[in-house]
Write a protein that binds this DNA or RNA. Structure first.
Lengths: 351, 351
DNA sequence: ATTAGCACTCTCGGCCTTACAGTGCTAACC
DNA sequence: GGTTAGCACTGTAAGGCCGAGAGTGCTAAT
């Protein structure tokens, strides 16, 4: 877990206060209703009276972990309260063995294809967390060639298909001034596949200029450049699933709350903006309420983790939802899916 | 335009009634407010009095083209009213020349790649119609091979990359019991690329069984099978854009209205369910309100058109939104985008 | 066929009232 | 000192009422 510096959280809570805060968070996440001293006593701590609980609640509010919608309402966790919960109180449950086996099985059912895995991972994750999920495809810091192919598809029209080390496939049609023969293209492809595999765009540029078909070769280099550019700008085609879950959330019944969220998801700004720090760091990143840099998304929390192999290829998997997020599910699940993707990629593409 | 049989629409309207219905539809689509006789007179037909207009409105209601939320409210078009509008009243404006050139220019800016085109088409279309857009990628009725490649990526692990005539690229990793050499794979690929291009899965099956590497060849055949299966089941990966527009629509302020819509879009049920009839028919398909077969989507309209080349590869492009849809924009735009994609595909992939 | 005039109907916003949920405080208790 | 019963206090939510306003439908006149 990536521990953020959060001011005001130095105070360590007594065991009972911690338990009560935990129960408030979990109850509120489930019911979406302010939690009263009454239900806390009935459901969680029957050994004490409501008055005692009220005293503890007042203290927790004093410290800033809880708030009050109004006098005669129960308590609601503040951002700081959620943060304390995630940092100290959340039972790191993980998944049951059968669950793990079930999910793993699903993945091995599917074609060996990064795109398919991302789809599946997104749908599994969003179903478990009951919130929208985004997964960006893995990108290499520097794209390296694994395999290239040139196909003549018309007079002076050539399709370049490059497979990168990351498993991504790029394709582009090039229009030439003069026609070229299929044979020349095959020769070029063979040459590159024998000699230049594993090279980056920069390393290929010179070879391209000297090659038999500079126009075509140049297009290939530009494709790799493009792939690098995308990975930096993070403009990759992030996959989103489970959007419909937020429509069911009470905090989004009013349209103006969730238009910005849908927009942010459609424009892929979340993983892209956080790609940099995330790729550098390890572990799971949790941003609660105002902690993340997106002020359009106030009242939303984000749980993100990177996957892939540092220095080779990295992607981001994450959950977004209201601050009232089931962190105890989201955090382990995001971590689990990230490690699962790690393994799949390792097994398949990096051997 | 695909004219549906709609009962009760036999009555041809007088010129003035038609004009008034047209104005009611357009005014209501823009303002989302019931239209009163007063604003009709002020904005559109100042030559007559409100009383006259009220008589006409009452007649239109009699015929079933309009309704009344309540006594002291203005008129709202019924599904039948929209239908009459689309069939008879809508000015088939088309796009201005500059618009066409602008859009065409945008498309020629972009990489020659079906995926990119679909993304761009979706974003252009949704921006113009201000409603969500879905585009299914083109699928062939029978997938035919254009190019195939076998790459050894590990011990006994082979990546099969097949490019289909439709421009789609399929990839799959195959695990073999025994290792194979890169040379054998290259031989196989060369052989296929020389002899078997343009073949379907069925036509390849025998050749695969007889080939040097039956396991690998078999995987390739299965990939083509899979592609065919997808095109039939319509489970293709439909691209959706502009979802955030509906959040702004007044009919979707309450979450329960749009959860089913988001769900339907996420699961791609609309283009998939209508794929069959659409691929068989030509022109633009407009389903208003209850006319389409999706009862989760009551109160929604759909404008769809197919694109591609019959017998070769076909896809679907469409707009969805509340019945209060700007048909006069949606219908020509969907048609224009479909024809644009036609041309791009024709130019690039079917030469 | 058109129109002025007017009664009629229904909604919407504001305001008040009541019920009630839940707290905060105080004083007693162990 | 921590815990608890009791109770006053406060803010919300739901229902009812009222007046204003919007827009129609009808009738009778042109």
């Amino acid at each position: 877990m990536l521990i953020l510096q959060v001011e005001g959280m130095t105070e360590a809570l007594s065991v009972r206060r911690g338990r009560i805060l935990k129960h408030v968070v979990e109850e509120y996440v489930i019911t979406a209703q302010p939690v009263s001293s009454d239900v806390l006593v009935r459901k969680y701590v029957p050994s004490v009276s409501t008055a005692t609980v009220r005293n503890e609640l007042a203290a927790l509010e004093e410290f800033g972990y809880l708030t009050h919608p109004h006098t005669s309402a129960g308590r609601v966790p503040s951002d700081l309260g959620y943060r304390y919960y995630v940092e100290w109180l959340m039972a790191d449950v993980g998944l049951t063995e059968t669950d793990e086996r079930l999910i793993s099985h699903q993945f091995h059912q599917v074609e060996f294809d990064i795109g398919e895995w991302i789809h599946l991972a997104a749908s599994v994750l969003s179903a478990r967390v009951q919130n929208p999920v985004m997964i960006s495809p893995p990108v290499s810091s520097v794209s390296r060639l694994r395999r290239i192919d040139f196909v003549r598809i018309g007079i002076g029209v050539v399709l370049v298909v490059a497979m990168l080390r990351s498993g991504t496939i790029k394709q582009q049609v090039v229009r030439l001034h003069d026609d070229v023969s299929s044979e020349a293209l095959t020769r070029l492809a063979n040459e590159w596949n024998e000699l230049l595999v594993g090279r980056s765009a920069d390393e290929l540029r010179d070879a391209a200029a000297l090659s038999e078909l500079p126009d075509v070769a140049d297009a290939a280099v530009r494709m790799l450049d493009e792939a690098d550019r995308q990975s930096v700008a993070g403009s990759g085609d992030v996959h989103v699933a489970g959007l419909s879950y937020i429509a069911a959330q009470p905090e989004f019944v009013t349209g103006d709350r969730f238009q910005p969220l849908v927009e942010a998801l459609e424009q892929h700004i979340i993983p892209n903006a956080l790609l940099g720090p995330l790729l550098a760091s390890t572990g799971t990143y949790v941003a609660i309420g105002q902690e993340h840099p997106f002020d359009q998304l106030s009242g939303c929390s984000v749980v993100l983790a990177r996957y892939g192999r540092p220095g080779e290829m990295l992607g981001v998997v994450g959950v977004i939802g209201p601050t009232r997020l089931p962190y105890w599910r989201a955090v382990p699940m995001v971590g689990y899916i990230a490690r699962l993707l790690d393994r799949l990629i390792e097994e398949t593409y990096l051997t």
